[in-house]
Simulated assay, not measured.
Amino acid sequence: MTDANPNVLPDKRRIAASFSRAAASYDGVAGLQRAVGAELLARLPAAMRAQRWVDLGSGTGHFSQALAERFPAGQGMALDLAEGMLRHARPRGGAAHFVCGDAECLPLAGASQDLLFSSLALQWCGDFAAVLGEAHRVLRPGGVFAFSSLCVGTLQELHDSWQAVDGFVHVNRFRRFRDYRQLCADSGLDILDLHMETRLLYYRDLRQLTHELKALGAHNLNPGRPDGLTGRARLLALVEAYERLRTPAGLPATWLPVYGVLRRRLE
């Protein structure tokens, strides 16, 4: 995914519908998402105090609860594009408000928030520059925008295996790390931390991986994917291609999360 090529970006209605359907199954397979979010939470400035915070792309509300524990005197908002996720999260509490909204056009007043926290949600936004612009707008001077997302190379093994089968888009596109770096540098926000890491997971078989992606709501959401059911012959060819990558630990899948902690300058 790149901001310069909007023709390859997934449709937001499809994204919202996919994650709404995944609300009940998400937590059961979200080990990586929990680990990345916990790492992002640990990277918040140790001394910061947030009276007003937003969990942006809040999903099932796991990190809304964690933020409420981190900032017990604050008032939080869980904001997500998927209404189904918000319905699932609301009974669990954590946030004072649950709002359906878009990170590229936040329904928030200017200079109203001390913290925007977003873990593994912004990779679904087509215009990351707009996300950064909105963060700059709604943060108070000294406020922090902390995010994690995914970079090109995520699920590379699955992508390469599909390429051995056909030329369709079967794996979600992600931005390059250098694109994140440039966009953050141009945002007007001070960069406190920006880095990428590699997380390599192993799966018993291809079915386990594809089941997990579907349960997360993160299966193929991009234009260019083949319509209709994937033929049995192609699936068998995909399994054969991926099996060539098998290690004693299982089938590898690379995930490349990027972490960013940015701050609006004091004025």
Rank of each mutant, 00 (worst) to 15 (best):
Y203I: 06
A22F: 08
N5T: 12
L209F: 06
R232T: 10
K214I: 06
T2N: 06
A4G: 14
V138H: 10
M196P: 00
G250A: 09
F71T: 06
A215Q: 14
A96R: 14
Q33F: 05
K214Q: 14
Q33D: 09
E197S: 15
V165A: 09
V138E: 02
L262K: 06
Q182W: 15
S64L: 10
G31V: 00
F71E: 07
H219T: 11
T154I: 12
F128P: 13
E197M: 14
E83V: 00
H62C: 05
P141W: 01
L236S: 15
P226N: 14
A4Q: 15
R21D: 00
L116E: 11
G260M: 06
D80A: 08
G231L: 02
Y259M: 08
G76N: 01
L192T: 06
F63P: 05
V54T: 12
S18C: 07
S18P: 09
G143S: 14
S25E: 09
D166E: 15
L120Q: 11
F128A: 11
E197T: 15
L189E: 08
Y259Q: 11
A249P: 06
D55P: 10
A46N: 00
V239S: 10
E212C: 03
D55E: 11
G167C: 11
H195P: 03
Y180Q: 10
A253M: 09
D127Q: 13
S18V: 12
V138I: 03
A103Q: 10
A129H: 11
Y26L: 01
A38C: 03
L209M: 06
L79M: 14
D27M: 00
G101D: 05
R87G: 09
L238F: 08
L40P: 14
E134D: 12
L216Y: 01
V169C: 11
A249I: 02
A185H: 11
L116N: 12
E267F: 04
A30W: 02
R49A: 12
A164L: 07
D102S: 09
D55H: 03
G133Y: 05
T198D: 15
A253C: 15
A215G: 04
A73I: 00
L262Y: 05
C105P: 06
N7P: 03
E104P: 04
D193W: 09
L192Q: 13
A66D: 13
A164R: 14
